[in-house]
Design a protein around this nucleic acid. Structure first.
Lengths: 350, 350
DNA sequence: AACCGCTAGGAAATCGATTGCCTAGACGCT
DNA sequence: AGCGTCTAGGCAATCGATTTCCTAGCGGTT
């Protein structure tokens, strides 16, 4: 029989039903008949204690539903087992996989994430940085939408920082980024491999780092195999509408394009629709490759879209692992580009 | 002249560049020539101090880049100015607006969010709950994808809990949810208002709470105006593929449908494509209304899709506000349904 | 019998900030 | 001159857990 405290309903020891006042370690110690120091040792597996004492304390803790006060602990130990994650733009489609990956890697080490959304506002960013520092996070992951380098979020910070997806202009900082050029090369090589020779590239705005970088890599990959683009790169927006428009342009130039590498899945989707409306068959007449491997887009396309996956989750995981390493005293430096992979689907099936 | 510590480069006082060892309030106090207690009072605007003393302390804090240790503070005050957010399923399309809304409401009160992703795993959920309690969060927001009620995450918890998007089966708990029935009614009323009379409903799986709830509300809204559905509700999946399939069904039954209310934007998009491929014009022949108002979907549709917006951000904001109220001693109870709104676009333009 | 070594567990300092209580000194009033 | 009042600011307890140092007592050895 478990004892039932007077008026408080006991719901069984495994249910997490902490009563209204927080239980402290001294209450546990009192119940077990030891000092608080001993109770602490018992619960943390430290010190020299008789097994039965240890057990008695553990049972007392269980019975009272004791959960150690993290603030008190971290005040003493200096560790918070918390990392901050600042998204410099907004939480969105790209941050989520990064976050999930990071959570994965950190969760294994029993750490939690403080999420801050700076919404592209430097003031907010610095405010959040202060907050994180005051909370004495063990480390910080900085992330954001743009893949070109940004100024470091702070200098001489007392905690390690890792940049994920975006990178820092300071080469001493540690950044984990997708290898977009590699992704573009994979796309081109794939299209060449299935026999396409007249390949066009439709992508986002020219001033956008990702767009111009991927375009250059694609062109080089073609040149490396002795080919030239079927048309000059078509720069526009990251939207379906632009994809549709670009399809019109390609059809009108009479360039006899037999494949298009698209800078995003959305552009590819627009192209797919417009091409099929114009009577072209995908992939027979024109093969298509997208970029991002965004599930709803690639699966929504008809036929399903071959796409380059930047493995954002892997980037998040990696960044978190590097942060953990830095926290444990072995920081990495520099820009770490992670290769993507090409996911072949019907839009390039021969 | 500011003194420059021996080897440490001083980067100017406004740059946030805390040096390697954390600055404590006693260092600030020492520099200002007061006791730590006085320094604390000076920085927090408490106590009776001469203005010049207060200023001296503030300048010292500034100069040293002092940021109060949150752990120490919360140990003393019992407040952490932190709330936990547990997503019971996964961080996804629905959680993000909720999170942003909550951040908005909490940020104004200078509180931060601890984000935990339980990934549909009750074990993880309880583990995270423990973590949040050990971190002594001031309150918890529970969220998730399903809109039907779920068992409370814990009973007799020492902190207030608000459910957002999902709701708790315990009527004493506070939940903020979208009024899906209201959304469905708006869709139907809109279609009736533009003169459609033969209205069908295509939605997700029948066992899915949202699907059956919206279907029922739609039917009642029709009946309320003296109409009957053009076909029985078509239950399927939450996917474009099902939308396309459903289009086929509708065309084959010869039901002469002139409008379709879709349970999701994805379904609507599938329908749009299949209908236009079959030679039907939207909205002339068939008007379409979606649900969710998911930007990439509604804008990707041709023509752009009229859709019901559940105002997730508003729900997140509301939930956070209610949590704040509860933290401050005036808890709300029960299920609070928030109306959505219909965003008219070309797919129902007359 | 005297001494040594070991084990189990207690006492108390510590982390950093807050806050209630106390007092030195300035000032005013009779 | 003596006393009361008020102000500015110091002192020290406190929050809860960890950890270092210390000791009582036990058993074994010569």
């Amino acid at each position: 029989m478990t004892r039932v405290p007077e008026t408080v309903p006991e719901t069984g020891e495994e249910t997490l039903s902490t009563m209204d006042r927080a239980v402290t370690i001294s209450q546990v110690a009192a119940l077990a008949g030891v000092s608080t120091g001993t109770a602490s040792k018992a619960l943390n597996g430290r010190g020299a204690l008789r097994p039965e004492t240890r057990l008695r304390v553990q049972q007392a803790a269980e019975q009272l539903g004791f959960v150690a006060n993290a603030a008190a602990r971290s005040l003493q130990t200096g560790r918070t087992y918390t990392v901050g994650m600042i998204t410099t733009d907004s939480i969105g489609r790209f941050s989520i996989p990064l976050l999930i990956g990071a959570e994965d890697a950190l969760g294994a080490g029993q750490m939690s994430i403080f999420l801050c959304d700076a919404r592209d506002d430097p003031i907010r960013e610095q405010y959040y940085l202060r907050t994180l520092l005051s909370r004495k996070v063990d480390g910080i992951i900085v992330t954001g939408r743009r893949t070109d380098a940004r100024a470091p979020i702070g200098v001489g910070l007392p905690v390690p920082v890792v940049y994920a997806f975006i990178s820092s202009t300071d080469p001493q900082d540690c950044s984990v980024v997708p290898d977009e050029a590699d992704g573009a090369r994979r796309a081109i090589r794939h299209l060449l491999a299935i026999g396409r020779r007249r390949i066009a590239h439709v992508t986002g705005p020219e001033h956008h780092h990702s767009a111009s970088l991927r375009a250059r890599a694609a062109e080089e990959a073609l040149a490396g195999e002795g080919f030239r683009p079927a048309t000059p790169t078509l720069y526009g927006e990251w939207s379906e509408a632009w994809g549709r428009q670009a399809a019109g342009i390609l059809l009108n130039t009479g360039a006899e394009v037999d494949a298009v590498f698209c800078g995003s899945d959305q552009i590819a989707r627009g192209l797919t629709e417009a091409l099929s409306k114009a009577g072209k068959q995908v992939p027979r007449d024109v093969a298509l490759v997208g970029f991002d491997n965004w599930d709803v887009m690639v699966e929504g396309c008809q036929p399903a879209l071959t796409s380059v996956d930047m493995d954002l989750e892997g980037i998040g995981r990696s960044a978190a692992e590097m942060l953990l390493a830095a926290i444990n005293g072995t920081p990495a430096h520099g820009r770490h580009a992670r290769p993507g992979r090409l996911i072949p689907r019907a839009s390039t099936a021969v």
